[in-house]
């Protein structure tokens, strides 16, 4: 009889919800209790420096291109010795969806996600972070990494002078 089946299903459902009334709630009462996010949690974005203290960002626009909501903008400039940097660098956190694609795209590991999620503001313009607010003093997640020591474009060391590089090939010579 279908009606008996229905009643049985009804009773089963009611029993399940009855049991849940006495479960301990999973709620985290946020302003009172703050969870510690995992280190790789994706929240506020920072720009890091290399071990020597120079800005890692070379203003290549890759993060800006990768960003699905187009919330990163910058202007590139070139400093002494051909070292590129961003004249200004801006992230609009009111648009950012914290997907982390910018951090994945960055070849210099300059742009990184941090677990600091408490960045709400009442004034929406205050969510537009300028370079001064983004740039931190440390190296972030990869303290060893220094882009110019692998890049082979001779800004920090002469071309071919990095430990994992071979000297440049003389393309006009005959010898292999």
């Amino acid at each position: 009889m279908p009606i008996l089946n229905d009643l049985k299903a009804l009773a089963t459902g009611l029993f399940v919800t009855w049991k849940h009334i006495f479960r301990r709630p999973v709620t985290v009462e946020y302003p009172d209790v703050k969870r510690t996010p995992y280190p790789r949690y994706r929240a506020r974005i920072v720009l890091t420096r290399d071990p020597d203290g120079g800005e890692r960002c070379v203003a290549c626009y890759l993060c800006s291109a990768a960003c699905p909501v187009d919330c990163i903008s910058m202007e590139a400039a070139e400093g002494e010795g051909g070292r590129r940097y961003a004249r200004w660098f801006r992230i609009n956190f009111s648009r950012c969806i914290f997907c982390g694609l910018c951090a994945e795209a960055c070849p210099t590991l300059a742009i990184q996600m941090t677990p600091d999620y408490e960045i709400c503001e009442r004034e929406v313009m205050e969510l537009v972070y300028e370079k001064e607010e983004l740039l931190i003093d440390g190296c972030g997640k990869d303290p060893e990494y220094d882009f110019y020591r692998h890049a082979g474009i001779g800004v920090v060391n002469p071309r071919g002078g990095n430990p994992d590089e071979e000297p440049p090939v003389d393309v006009r010579g005959l010898m292999p």
Binding site: H20, I21, F22, R23, R24, P25, T27
Partner: peptide
């Protein structure tokens, strides 16, 4: 409150 408890909330 009751619905919250049923859904494991507070």
């Amino acid at each position: 409150r009751l619905l919250a408890w049923i859904q494991d909330r507070k």
